[in-house]
Amino acid sequence: MLPVFVLLLALGIDARWGEPRARFHPVVAMGRYLAACGRVTVRLRPAPAFALGALAWWLGVLVTGLLAWGVQAFAFRQFGLLIAQPAPDRAAAFVLLAALMGWLLKCMLSWRMLHDEVGAVELALQQSLEAGRERLSWLVSRNTALLSASEVRESAIESLAENLNDSVVAPIFWFVLFGLPGAAIYRFANTADAMWGYRGQWEWAGKWAARADDVLSWLPARLTAVLLALAARGLPLGALRWEASKTPSPNSGWPMAAMALALGVSLGKPGVYTLNAAGRPAAPVDTASAQKYASKAVLALVLFAKIAIIIIAISYYIALSP
């Protein structure tokens, strides 16, 4: 089935080539649009800042969704026409259409870069604390200048868990439900939250973007926690729910708490929250273990995604049958 092939191809492209160049990356284009709009909205008073921020968000979602829908509709239409073509022509055209959709879906997710960047922080820490802090600053928005070696490692592991949802699970979740438009709209919403969803000067201009991302990430974040629990061969659900509730975000606490419990370490942001406070400080081996658990979670996700796509396709076929 085409969606399954597209998903596997997207993950294959990600594993082999990683991120495309910035000038060819759709998410970079989203970021440029959001940056241009943000320069205007952030200067306004609260009410107009909120209204214009919400309007800019909806406009971005509309354009992103329509473009993704157009590509998907074209691909499915051509795929339908290919059935009547000779086998060699049909196979070549199918591969080209799937490659186009697979590349676009790959741009909406990023597993290889996330995995490698977390490993790069650990390698930098082996050189020096300063090198580790510097490398971590590529991955997180918090101030890394005063972090200890253990805190640098904890921050990297937290980022792996949180972005496992944002960069892998959630895009695939919405792709399974709504195809390429679902993944593209989620990626736009998550990028908007990453750029606008802060307090302070962005309090009102980014409020809609922040709340929209909370809604779209609600189910995927909990799914990510379940996948990590499966990778760890079970976690106490009561403890997971309690630890997840400690973070200000309604979603990010779930994958981070699952990772903390799976590793048996304490993860936290100084002065904000501590997850699994009874756990030990993160050690070098925990970075590799976190990568292993995340990799297992991705493999489980792909398996469940394939099953879900097949079930949806069969249900759709039955519903349309006379």
Rank of each mutant, 00 (worst) to 15 (best):
F5N: 02
L8A: 06
L9D: 00
L9H: 02
A10D: 01
G12P: 01
I13D: 00
I13M: 11
D14K: 04
A15R: 10
A15D: 03
R21A: 14
R23V: 13
Y33P: 04
L34T: 04
L34A: 09
L34K: 03
G38D: 05
R43D: 05
L44R: 05
L44E: 01
G53Q: 08
G53K: 02
W57F: 15
L59Q: 04
V63D: 09
A68Y: 05
A68Q: 00
G70R: 01
Q72K: 00
A73D: 10
A75T: 08
R77K: 01
Q78R: 10
G80R: 03
G80I: 01
L81D: 06
L81I: 00
A87C: 00
D89E: 08
A91Y: 04
A93M: 09
A98R: 00
W103S: 00
L104P: 02
C107A: 15
C107G: 08
M108H: 09
M108V: 00
W111V: 08
M113S: 13
L114F: 11
V121E: 11
L123S: 14
A124V: 09
L125S: 03
R135A: 12
W138D: 12
N143T: 07
L146K: 09
S150L: 00
V152R: 12
I157V: 15
E158P: 10
S159D: 11
E162P: 07
L164C: 14
N165Y: 11
N165V: 13
D166H: 13
D166F: 12
S167C: 13
A170V: 03
A170G: 14
F173W: 15
F175Y: 15
F178L: 15
G179M: 03
P181C: 10
A184H: 10
F188A: 04
F188I: 05
T191H: 06
A192W: 10
M195R: 06
M195P: 05
E203S: 13
A205D: 02
W208V: 15
A210F: 05
A212H: 07
A212K: 02
V215P: 05
L216K: 02
A221R: 01
A225T: 03
A231C: 06
G234K: 04
L235P: 10
P236M: 04
L237F: 11
G238F: 06
L240H: 14
E243Q: 15
E243N: 09
S252L: 12
W254S: 12
W254E: 11
L261S: 10
L263G: 05
K269R: 13
G271A: 09
Y273F: 14
R280H: 06
P281R: 01
A288M: 06
A288G: 09
Q291G: 14
S295Y: 08
A300Y: 14
F304M: 15
K306W: 06
I310L: 13
I310N: 02
I312Q: 12
S315A: 13
P322C: 02
